[in-house]
């Protein structure tokens, strides 16, 4: 049914990947008392942001991300990764960097850690960044910039 409706969906992989992400966030919360928010950890690790998390702890988490993705890719075989062209990467990166700092979080901090805590701020932030993402891609489709 799922496959018939959405031929490109990978619900099982999505669910397993999500459970791993949630497990990692749970380890950060219960083990270290920290929110596994990638934008916050990245800002802390690079010194752009402050906070109570020791820089080494933040940097370790951030370095783990590509290492973990690389190890997983060795296991599950070649992954399909398709990037937009560089102007979209630059504009997207600038907005993501500025926006996540201004909004105090991204998909992980607000979307995973905050929503599961029923934080009002995170629920509002997640609804807004999802709505903005949907609207942005709709505009890109309308003006023929999607997949460019």
């Amino acid at each position: 049914m799922m496959e018939a409706l959405f031929p490109h969906a990978a619900p099982l992989q999505g669910l397993i990947g999500g459970l791993l992400i949630g497990l990692a966030a749970a380890i950060m919360l219960l083990g270290l008392g920290r929110i596994a928010g990638v934008s916050g950890m990245t800002a802390r690790a690079t010194g752009i942001g402050g906070g109570a998390t020791p820089r080494l702890v933040a940097a370790s988490f951030v370095i783990g991300l590509p290492l973990g993705a690389g190890i997983a890719a060795q296991w599950i075989g070649p992954l399909h990764i398709d990037f937009p062209a560089w102007p979209a990467l630059i504009l997207g990166g600038l907005l993501v960097g500025f926006g996540t700092r201004m909004g105090s979080g991204c998909t992980s901090g607000h979307g995973v850690c905050g929503i599961s805590r029923l934080s009002r701020r995170s629920i509002v932030a997640t609804m807004l960044f999802m709505a903005s993402g949907f609207a942005t891609v709709a505009v890109m489709r309308a003006i023929g910039l999607l997949g460019v």
């Binding site: 999500g18 791993l20 973990g68 890719a73």
Partner: peptide, 13 residues
Amino acid sequence: AGLIFGAGLAVGG
């Protein structure tokens, strides 16, 4: 935690 998180991002697409 970062390793598991990164693996999850890769597995989940």
